[in-house]
Amino acid sequence: MQFPQRFSNLPEYAFPRLRRLLDAHAPGGDVVHMSIGEPKHAFPAWITDIITQNAAGFGQYPPNDGTPELLAAMAAWVERRYGVTLDSEREIMALNGTREGLFNSAIALCPEEKRGRPVVLTPNPFYQVYAVAALAVGAEPVYVPATAATGFLPDYGALPAEVLNRTAIAYVCSPANPQGAVADAAYWRALITLAERYDFRIFADECYCEIYRDAAPVGAIEVARAMGADPERVVIFHSLSKRSNLPGLRAGFVASGPQNIDRLRQLRAYSGAPIPLPLQRAAEAVWNDEAHVTASRAIYQTKFDIADRVFAGIQGCGAPEAGFFLWLPVEDGEAAALKIWRETGVRVLPGAYLSRDVNGDNPGRGYIRVALVAEQQEMQGGLERLRDCIFT
């Protein structure tokens, strides 16, 4: 029996790989989980009441693209957040979390050819679904370093014209996972101008946009609309997982121009898994509420201050601009993660597990990713143990 070759070179996924690295060794202290970006702050207490009140909806097939009320709530959030008015009937679609959308949008929108085999640009390191999506559509994934030298965002404009001429999609994560860098308006303007010149789409993964220090990160769609760019040029992805501490709700959305959304809806009609109706009702209420988001953000801002104090004076180890990961420089991320586990019981992720080797270089090799998701006291203790193990 034959198997497809297009996924044959995929490395083992990050978390099974981490278990293989660590689990044969006893932890060196009380275990603190800081490897997975699973929010631990309280989600809105009233959400369970909404699900219960609408539980009869589990007996119905839910609307595939989202109820009119949910789509209106998501469009209203985009207008409040970015000052962009969307047609909720034509420019937005509900998703089972952003990972579904980031994958299926490539299937729906990547052409089979563009001056030969199409290219999908991906920052390196990156959220791993980007690479799988590129391979699934037969495109060539091009991994572009997002390092300190480039402000931890990919410099797509530095690529040769031969690559850009074949580019169909460029993924950008802002705020970036894992580095926490934020694309400012100038970055988006330059990228949108590049995309207009070489005729490719930008997939803007913005699921960490509501976790930040001071100023709310600018959005790709607001810059595109201000520029008067083609509304099909930018496709944005948002989720309640990080914003509202609801990773298990599996509720997000994709928004773009009507032609893109029409193709996404057509594909989803055949292959999508719609959000159960009671969960759509809950998501509608959550998108309409900002009080819980403000409260959660304040907790993260306190955590940023704690991280800054713990790592004061250690080069490159401060809290991020946004998001909830520390991207800490070490000599070797895998060796550091194992040492930290064996000596302290703190569980972190080697940066290389989020990156790809390109010409023998892996830009994540000299880093570890540390998630600031635990309760504050536990998190502070974990950071102090990590610091004392690696940096002193």
Rank of each mutant, 00 (worst) to 15 (best):
G101F: 07
A312H: 07
S241T: 00
N96Y: 02
T344A: 02
G252I: 07
A319W: 10
A133L: 03
V32T: 12
H41C: 13
V330M: 13
L18V: 13
N104L: 13
I390H: 01
G157N: 05
Q280H: 09
R265E: 12
A298Q: 13
A106I: 00
L191M: 11
P68Y: 11
F152E: 02
L102N: 02
E162V: 08
R201C: 03
F3H: 11
G333C: 13
D357F: 13
L338V: 01
C110T: 08
I340L: 08
L349G: 13
G323L: 07
A224M: 01
M1P: 09
F311Y: 05
I390T: 14
R197E: 14
A220N: 02
P363C: 05
D205V: 08
K339V: 00
A229K: 08
K40H: 14
R365A: 15
A312M: 02
E222C: 00
A106W: 00
V142R: 05
G345V: 03
G313E: 06
L22G: 11
G59D: 12
M34V: 09
Q380M: 01
N288S: 15
D230K: 09
G37E: 07
T150F: 05
A134N: 03
G37A: 06
A24P: 04
W77S: 09
E378L: 15
D388N: 05
K242H: 10
P125G: 04
L246E: 14
L372R: 01
E38Q: 11
P44W: 02
A56C: 02
R356H: 11
P350A: 15
P231Q: 13
Q2Y: 07
R268V: 08
F58H: 14
I368Q: 10
Y127A: 15
F152W: 14
L326Q: 15
T122N: 15
M34N: 06
P178M: 06
E12S: 06
I169W: 10
A168D: 06
A161Y: 06
H33N: 13
V218S: 01
T48M: 10
F391E: 12
I275P: 07
G157H: 08
D357M: 09
Q301K: 05
F7V: 08
Y270I: 07
T294W: 05
R385Q: 00
V32M: 01
A170E: 11
G364T: 05
A322T: 04
T85R: 12
G219K: 02
V137C: 06
G57V: 09
F200A: 10
G323F: 07
